[in-house]
Design a protein around this nucleic acid. Sequence first.
RNA 1: GGAGAGAUGGCCGAGCUGGCUGAAGGCGCUCGCCUGCUAAGCGAGUGUGUGGUGAAAGCUGCACCGAGGGUUCGAAUCCCUCUCUCUCCGCCA
Length: 422
Amino acid sequence: MLEIKFVRQNLSEVEKALSARGDTADLETFKTCDEKRRKNLAEIEDLRHRRNVVSDQIAGMKKTGENADVLVLEMREVSGRIKELEKSLSADEEMVSKILMGIPNIPHASVPMGADETDNPLLKQVGERPSVAFEPKPHWDLGEALGILDFERASKITGARFPLYLGQGARMERALINFMLDIHTTEHGYKETLPPFMVNRQTMTGTGQLPKFEADLFKLEGWDYFLIPTAEVPVTNIHQNEVLDEESLPVYYTAYTPCFRSEAGSYGKDTRGLIRQHQFNKVELVKFSKPETSYDELESLLDNAETILKRLELPYQVITLCTGDLGFSAAKTYDIEVWMPAQGVYREISSCSNFEDFQARRANIRFKRKGKKGTELVHTLNGSGLAVGRTFAAILENCQQADGSVVIPEALRPYMGGSEKL
RNA sequence: GGAGAGAUGGCCGAGCUGGCUGAAGGCGCUCGCCUGCUAAGCGAGUGUGUGGUGAAAGCUGCACCGAGGGUUCGAAUCCCUCUCUCUCCGCCA
């Protein structure tokens, strides 16, 4: 959420940011409701002031035994008027907040202009793509042939877009989770967390998934709870409604969780394999920082995620999302894309974003500077470190041999009981 | 699922027969004094949000005692609904 004052005073800038994103919002209604709201509020506060003063008078008169009937009668009217005005005030407030909650973050000045993903500039490419003398097979064929993935049985158990890992496959998924968590906790300074996989509406609103994107979420029937689409949601909300100490910043958390996404609107896309599932595993990195260091923190967060791919010796590239492809809450985002030889494309495996104070304002996460009055909003950041299912798929495709076997990356072998091959 | 108790400021904890209580007292923290260091002692200060005014320090209006609604001239205090926590019983990994 943007600050209401900022929107009021910078309507044209907000308008510009919206159009750069290819988004819209009813700023006209915002303006009229906000003005009306402020005018009403001023009158209400005057009346309340009068009521407070006179109520004290009444109390004093009652004490000395004077008759206060005239004042009581007058205040009865004042209270009625207040109630009336409050009614129209809350209608305007609701409208203003509804519009405000639907306005995306302002892209950072360094974010390139662009319409969609085809305009995302390449930042760098790392690692050698495997040069193979044979036609590389897609990971779903490899996985099924090796008996470590079974999509048919998964769809029997639940439906389409759910994974079933078996044997060494299940073990490698678990190995990857531990491998990633170990690196982030022991080498990068993140604190490991294991949060709830379901969250309430307020939490979902705090990080920006609600109210605009309810269709993308799985909702529990009979409960106002949602399955998390990413660990970003529960972990960022750890400090919801808190004031952090300046000395405690920056705070780094990592978490493994499964992620649940309805994938509404993606019918027909990536229908095979592990790329687009309703349930997938992810190790997430979350940071809380002071505003002045958040962009440095974004760079190191990206580096932390890249480390995993480097250790696994998987070729990847990093792109900067342009204004048109930026997520709702993000001010700036880097995507890491891993090489998938069978499709001959790079696929997103991590998304690292700085949300600045956009989520902090919604979730009310602040910090206090030593020796200074008042509090400030923190900046929040997060990134995948990494999407586990997609990492699994990338290993199968990049490390496949002519005979259909897969060589396990060296760094992962200690987590696989020393096995060298699948 | 059944029965009961509770939710107050950074923390602990009064108030809860409605009105000088934005909130006693204590702890913590900050500044000053004192003491050859430390400890103890003394004095002052110390919530958040939002609006007005001011160059600023500040002054000032309104709101906030789990959340929402109600009664009343006036509510932390009374009533209703909800959420959460704790205790006991039942059930269960």
